[in-house]
Design a protein around this nucleic acid. Structure first.
Lengths: 239, 239
DNA sequence: TATCTTTATATGTATGACATAATACAAAAA
DNA sequence: TTTTTGTATTATGTCATACATATAAAGATA
């Protein structure tokens, strides 16, 4: 039998899919902005000639991704979708694959190495003081317990993100924390041991000092060393 | 009248909200993984004592964020949510605020500066050849038209993301392209003019050469220069 | 064995009814 | 007048039922 080629399959969209597309068109055509209210379900249903059920399903999708909000009696209004929140929802279900998790962890490394210029441009005296406190706290505890604590790790690096003054980036990191701890927990014991061994590698204190008196370039290099155990693991991983 | 204090409002979750939470619990308790199939709508409805409508709405939310897929007659199975796709959907509606767009653009700069180590560790001979072609193409056209083309910009930087070999990162950039062009279009003419003015700033060719014979540090520094006009604009923006 | 046809079934769509919460407005109280 | 309280209205939220549709799986046909 001759192979069938060059024939595009006819689109197989469900009614809800079509309605969703029409809604998107509608928003575009009418140039609707955040805060604008949209017609009620029954009006849409009538105008498009479908049941309220279908309209509701389409609208519900929009509600789920945060494009609209609805209130009883008041109706529906367009809202600014919270891109991070969608992310979050997906993660809550613990269904991200190994590869995605690794990718995301890698993303963290990239972010922290790339953040240098932003940090130097935006850091304030208060930021430095905060970091000082965080590092001092860590050093005090480590003398006693000599146990690596994920908490301090998060406190220090979290503060860096905060200093970036980029809300999206910051929330991104908030939400990725569980991923970080996941990867952290699943790291080989060896990697854990030689991590942050003072002297060999750059410590939080070192990073802080560079922030105080150094340059973005030096900071990047230092951060690279600081993250080296992670980097090594990730870089040489079979992809 | 005495002021009312210390009374927490009682939770006001819709039925669908509650059902959604119960479903999440259910997945957790039964330790369900990607690929596992779940009971049908009617069974859930009966088990939870609510109408099929409510169950469907809750399930639809999950379907929207990509946690489940459903097929007629077959039922529903857990799927790996595509975090990028969710992002994408939100963006399609053109409802992201100015601030978010700026944040995201900033994110791009951070990513490209932070990517250096990854690139050097993972680039192949073919990658370099591809880049060579892209740059040559650009140079040829620029001689004729001397017009800056977003296309070449995207081709070159897109290739870099591709070379990172990080699928998530790559798709992230794919989806952010519209944001990039948006910010690009809205840039002040001055910024556009002194951008990539050969000689003054680092060109794509320069970056490529560093990739061939240089080091990650040099590449980072070069990329910093290359992106300087963008960086300046963003760094000194009132936040 | 391979291919076609039928059948059972879970999701998809339609309809109509009622519940609920939020608004606007009227009425009452201060 | 101002503030509080009640009431009607209305758009979304929930329910029940029926039917449409696609398709996996079983059965029939070659």
């Amino acid at each position: 039998m001759k192979k069938l080629r060059n024939i595009t399959p006819l689109e197989n969209l469900s009614l809800v899919d079509k309605v969703e597309n029409r809604l998107k068109e509608y928003f575009r055509e009418n140039n609707l902005k955040i805060g604008d209210s949209i017609p009620k379900e029954l009006e849409f249903a009538e105008a498009l000639g479908v049941s309220r059920t279908v309209i509701r399903e389409a609208l519900l999708r929009l509600r789920t991704i945060g494009v609209i909000e609805s209130k009883k009696r008041k109706g529906m209004v367009l809202t600014q979708p919270d891109i991070i929140q969608n992310f979050e929802k997906a993660i809550e279900y613990n269904l991200l694959g190994e590869q995605t998790l690794t990718d995301i962890f890698e993303l963290r490394l990239i972010l922290e190495m790339g953040m240098a210029d932003l940090l130097f441009a935006r850091m304030t005296k208060e930021d430095i003081e905060d970091l000082d406190t965080i590092v001092a706290e860590q050093e005090k505890e480590e003398v006693n317990t000599s146990i690596f604590s994920l908490e301090h790790e998060i406190a220090f690096h979290g503060k860096l993100y905060e200093m970036s003054n980029n809300t999206t980036l910051q929330r991104f990191q908030d939400l990725l924390l569980p991923v970080f701890s996941y990867v952290h927990d699943n790291m080989s014991p060896e990697a854990k041991n030689f991590k942050y061994s003072k002297g060999t590698f750059v410590t939080h204190r070192d990073l802080l000092n560079i922030l105080k008196t150094g340059t973005p370039e030096r900071f990047r290099e230092a951060m690279r060393n600081h993250l080296e155990p992670h980097l090594e693991k990730v870089l040489h991983m079979a992809k």
